[in-house]
Simulated scan of single mutants.
Amino acid sequence: MEKGGKDGLVLIRIQKSQKEHWKKICLEKQISLTNLIIDSVENRIMDNERKKVMAFIEKQDNIFVKIETNINQIAKIVNGQKFISENDLQKFSHQLTEILKLKSRQNEVFINICSMLGK
């Protein structure tokens, strides 16, 4: 695709009902008819879907920031007391293991998302 202006024009003939259906889709997705057609033909992720994905990534990042803050608070308490019970240590270790699994899965999802966004 060329950078700069859009000087190409494609005319297609479709039934009026089909055009209205497409316009309804565009209205729901808050995208232009041009973007709907181009993204569909080129098998790219739609702009509205891209925005949803970016919002999801931000939300996930915020969740893990909160978890990391909680881990730091627990470490500070343990360092101050110089003690943690065996039961609390096992619970904490289990939670850290779960977080590692979730983070690993999240990274796999992000890799897939990034490859979709690159299209």
Rank of each mutant, 00 (worst) to 15 (best):
K119C: 08
L27W: 08
D47Y: 15
Q30I: 00
V109Q: 01
N43Q: 13
Q73W: 01
E20S: 03
K59P: 00
I74T: 13
K51F: 13
F83K: 07
K66N: 15
L117P: 00
N70Q: 08
K24L: 07
N48F: 03
D61G: 11
D47L: 11
Q106E: 07
D7Q: 13
I37M: 06
R44K: 14
M1A: 11
L33G: 05
K59I: 09
S32Y: 00
K51P: 00
I84K: 03
K29C: 02
I63A: 07
E20L: 02
M54F: 14
I113W: 04
I31C: 03
I25H: 07
Q106P: 00
I45G: 02
K59M: 09
Q95G: 08
S32D: 03
H94Q: 10
Q18F: 09
G118Y: 12
E2K: 12
F110M: 00
F110P: 00
K52A: 12
E86R: 05
N62D: 09
F56C: 07
K59H: 12
Q95M: 08
L33T: 08
K23Q: 14
R50E: 07
K51T: 09
I84C: 10
K23C: 04
E108I: 01
A75V: 14
G8K: 10
L102D: 15
M46Q: 12
V78E: 07
K119H: 15
N70F: 15
K119L: 06
I71G: 08
Q18Y: 10
G118D: 06
L33P: 01
T34C: 10
W22K: 01
E108K: 04
L117H: 02
